[in-house]
């Protein structure tokens, strides 16, 4: 049997999520529990609350605290060309098909601070497709979106990104795309000409465009099965027939209800193709 304290904490977390939903219309009620539990405990410590219900009280009454709490409800970790094999597989197996469309729409769902979408823009540029592409980069974290649009990354990470870029089949040098500025690097503005950054939630919003590629990496891991099904349902509806879906390295369609709507293209890189109409 579980101890009562743990039961109570879980109950309080559920109440807090309900309160956040009613007050701020952000829906975290179907997020994976284990990770939420961990991050709510961290938030309690950070904000000096003895109980989850104290945190809830403050959240209800202090809107400014909610925006800080968004950093605890969501996990902002990203990297340029994270898992180079994924980007290499896009180049080799997806780009040749995208090339056949006169205009291309792509959706990076859960783009965080932009590392993934800037990587994709560079890839499209090198393949000569950026000019006729439109990339929607969406997230619920508005601060992350702002950072993403800025295209400015910590100089400490650049060496790692360059290595990833090379391993991903990069055709130039990553240094060709940024200029150094103080403690950061700023990526070439022309790369984001065709990127639209927008606030969009996979938990509460609906499909907004038809696209040929959805890249949604390391976002579904934070959702429970029901919400994963909702999100993948949105991707299925947004994708054209034969359109591509790329997931994170350890994410799989296998356990969800939409598994039949897709077939693997590069299984080990989690790249799928929509087969259903």
């Amino acid at each position: 049997m579980r101890d009562q304290e743990a039961e109570l904490r879980d109950l309080e977390i559920r109440l807090l999520l309900e309160a956040v939903y009613l007050r701020y219309h952000y829906d975290f009620r179907d997020y994976a529990t284990a990770s939420l539990r961990r991050r709510m405990t961290q938030a309690m410590m950070k904000f000096g609350c003895a109980r989850i219900s104290d945190l809830q009280h403050r959240l209800l009454h202090e809107p400014a605290l909610f925006s800080q709490m968004l950093q605890y409800f969501t996990v902002q970790v990203s990297e340029m060309f994270r898992d180079p094999g994924y980007f290499l597989a896009l180049r080799q197996h997806v780009i040749p098909v995208l090339r056949t469309y006169p205009s291309i729409k792509l959706w990076v769902a859960g783009c965080s601070s932009g590392e993934e979408v800037w990587s994709l823009a560079i890839l499209l540029h090198e393949e000569g497709l950026l000019e006729r592409s439109l990339i929607y980069a969406t997230d619920i974290n508005t601060e992350a979106l702002k950072a993403a649009a800025g295209g400015r990354f910590d100089v400490a990470n650049v060496a790692g990104y360059s290595k990833n870029y090379q391993a991903s089949g990069g055709k130039a040098s990553l240094g060709d795309y940024y200029t150094s500025a103080y403690d950061g690097v700023i990526f070439d503005r022309s790369l984001k000409k065709n990127i639209v950054f927008a606030d969009h939630s996979l938990s509460t919003d609906s499909v907004f465009s038809e696209v040929q590629l959805v890249s949604c990496r390391n976002v579904l891991i934070y959702f429970n099965r029901a919400l994963q099904d909702r999100a993948v349902g949105l991707f299925r509806d947004a994708l054209v027939r034969g359109g591509f879906l790329g997931l994170g390295n350890k994410e799989s369609l296998q356990f969800g209800t939409h598994a039949d709507a897709f077939e693997p293209v590069v299984r080990e890189q989690r790249i799928y193709r929509k087969i259903a109409p």
Partner: peptide, 29 residues
């Protein structure tokens, strides 16, 4: 199980603490 990209714990990802704590919350005794 669920995976997560939360910050490394004591420079490690995966780390032992998150596995043990989350398992304790589910399986207790």
């Amino acid at each position: 199980v669920a995976l997560s990209l939360d910050e490394p714990v004591l420079f490690s990802r995966p780390a032992i603490d998150p596995l043990f704590s989350s398992a304790a919350a589910v399986f207790s005794n």
